[in-house]
Simulated scan of single mutants.
Amino acid sequence: MSRRHIDAQQAAFDEYHDEPGALPTMRARFEHNGSPRYLLYTIKRFGFDRDHGFHLDVELVSDELESGMETIRERLDGGGTDLVDTDYISVARERAEGADIVAIHPYGRTVGGLVAPEETDIAGLEDLSGKRLGVTRRLDKNWILTRAACREFHDFDPDETATLVEADSRDSLTRMIREGAVDAGFQFWPLVPELTETGPFVEVLPISELVQRLSRTDRKLPIATFLTGESSLDANPAAVRAFAAAARDAVDRLVADDDLWVDIADRLMRVDDPTTARAVRDGWRDMVVRDWDAETVAGMYRLFDHLESVAGAEALGVAEIPDGTFRPEP
């Protein structure tokens, strides 16, 4: 993504940035190509932050700053940021290593789907043996979830019965799928429509379904969460609760308002095709998690246990989720 496009996105946010006045401020620093920006934009555009008594300051960060949890930890611990997002396994890992971070609200089931040519004979998990399967990398959570589900429900591990091909990047994986270098590929959810809406490809296995089966809960289970520094939460719990309320309002608006998505596609997406933009909209609506409770958190623990049994604590970087990682009621 060009610097010009990133600046254009930031300008879309800045149009709705006003002075905080006496309101407490939450400083949000989010990736310029991450889907949480749709929710944050909605909060700013409709003033949901002010409605709930705080000021949300959003800055989109560029590729140079996207270096994983180390950067997230530095932003939160360093005092320059109050709000970021990442998957809850990373939150648990960094908290276990002493990071002053805590998950305070769900974001969504940020997983992907297995995409294959329309004429594929892959109909489900039981058909993966003997196939060449593409992933961005071996520790991709889509692949680990698939292995866990195959072991749990079909008594085999596709890591032993299929051929895994690592693409190293999402763009390279898309090329491999298009060129037929693999029988199917596990692509991240916002990129699935680029294949299924523009070419002869189908999503044969939504990984979100495996998340729900493995977690054994009917509540939609988040993989990614919003997080803040624990010291920030202790110092200003009202602002954190206000963000959660504003996020719920934004989700409600994004689920109901199709016209809003036309504006988002124009100002925040790289997608020119309206059909693909609508598919991203529908995927976001299926992915997002509006709220969570004790049942949701219990499911997140169960899912972690499945992932640890497949990948191992060394690969995940943490043997268990530390106490206090999740705060459903901050």
Rank of each mutant, 00 (worst) to 15 (best):
R4V: 13
R4N: 14
A11Y: 09
E19L: 11
A22T: 08
H32R: 04
N33S: 12
L39Y: 01
G53S: 04
F54E: 02
D57L: 10
E64I: 12
R75H: 01
D87T: 07
Y88W: 15
I101V: 15
H105T: 06
P106W: 00
P106Q: 00
G112S: 05
L114P: 06
L114C: 06
E119L: 01
V135M: 03
R138F: 13
D140E: 10
R147D: 10
A148D: 06
A149G: 08
F156E: 03
T163G: 05
E166T: 01
S172P: 04
R175F: 05
V192I: 13
V192H: 01
P193L: 10
V204W: 13
L205E: 07
E209W: 03
L210H: 11
Q212M: 11
Q212G: 07
R213V: 03
K220F: 05
F226W: 14
E230K: 13
N236C: 06
A238C: 01
V240R: 00
A242Y: 04
A244S: 15
D249E: 12
V255T: 11
D258H: 03
I264A: 07
R285F: 02
V289G: 06
L303F: 08
F304K: 13
F304T: 11
E308D: 10
G317N: 08
A319V: 12
G324K: 10
P330Y: 03
